[in-house]
């Protein structure tokens, strides 16, 4: 009995340690964002302090406000999501449902594009975009974001299209509806849920991207992940403000992540399951 009890206590201890380890850096950033700089720098670290929204006021409405950067992030993420979905939904339907030569190869190609290291994409793209004057533009960033959002969205959507029963489609087709009409009226409504999940993940990935953004951003287009750097320089770190910006950058993705909780494993492993054939 006591051995069993010891086991339970050990389990509880281990669980607590891991839950704390994962939650703490995030919680700590939130706490620091509500402190003054001197409270952030206090030693030993302060758990109890007089909370203030000063840091948020400063980063949002002070000089060097990050509102334009948040707006940049929103435009980039929304733009990427719209363009991606417009292209990925039809492509995923074709890959999941239609019969044509080279289908297997097409599916493989979509997967294989993900093998290319992002740094290998951005080097040539930097040269191209520089030549056509698209550095520091939304169209430049959104275009290159398709390189990772499209394969991801296509594969995630294929898995949802494959789940709908074939009969519905045949019935509609027999009734004389055109293929496009069948797709639009019958199929799309069936995969609404899958489309919503895909939108969440595409947005999330675009919001979080950093390498392409850091190379292509400038004074006009600078998402918040890149703008964060302004708060940490060699001379000084603006501690509380940095914490506030971090929290603002984390907020949308944490909300989306928790909303899409049930689908997160599927979203994280998409493609891998199909990659080497079914198991």
């Amino acid at each position: 009995m006591s051995a069993k009890r010891l086991r339970i206590i050990a389990l509880l201890a281990i669980s607590t340690v891991f839950l704390l380890a994962w939650a703490f850096p995030i919680v700590w950033s939130v706490l620091n964002s509500l402190k003054t700089d001197s409270d952030v720098l206090a030693y030993p670290p302060k758990l109890v302090f007089a909370p203030t929204l000063e840091a948020y006021r400063d980063v949002l409405f002070g000089s060097g406000s990050i509102l334009p950067n948040l707006l940049s992030s929103v435009i980039i993420s929304v733009g990427t999501t719209i363009v991606t979905m417009l292209m990925a939904v039809p492509a995923a339907y074709a890959l999941a449902r239609l019969r044509f030569r080279g289908k297997k190869f097409a599916g493989f190609y979509v997967l294989a594009t993900q093998m290319l290291p992002p740094v290998g994409i951005i080097i040539p793209y930097f040269l191209v975009l520089r030549n056509i004057g698209w550095i520091d533009t939304y169209q430049g960033i959104i275009l290159i974001y398709l390189s990772f959002s499209l394969p991801f969205a296509i594969w995630l959507l294929v898995s949802y299209f494959e789940d709908i029963p074939l009969e519905m489609e045949e019935a509609a087709y027999l009734d004389g509806a055109s293929r496009l009409k069948t797709l639009w009226r019958i199929i799309i409504p069936q995969v609404r849920g899958g489309i919503a999940v895909t939108i969440v993940f595409v947005f999330l990935n675009a919001w979080n991207e950093f390498l392409f953004a850091v190379v292509l951003s400038g004074n006009t287009v600078r998402p918040v992940t890149v703008a964060m750097f302004n708060f940490v320089s060699v001379e000084q770190t603006l501690w509380a403000k940095l914490a506030a910006v971090s929290v603002l950058a984390m907020l949308p993705v944490v909300v989306l992540g928790v909303v899409a909780q049930k689908h997160i494993v599927k979203g994280l492993t998409v493609g891998a399951v199909k990659g080497g054939g079914r198991r």
């Binding site: 850096p25 964060m228 909780q261």
Partner: peptide, 26 residues
């Protein structure tokens, strides 16, 4: 349930934000 929710937090964050938080506050 605790694990299922908390485990989501790190993976949805931008690695850039994670890096900044660790570099400074941790």
């Amino acid at each position: 349930g605790w694990f299922r929710v908390i485990a989501i937090l790190p993976v949805v964050l931008s690695p850039a934000v994670v890096g900044m938080i660790w570099r400074t506050f941790m």
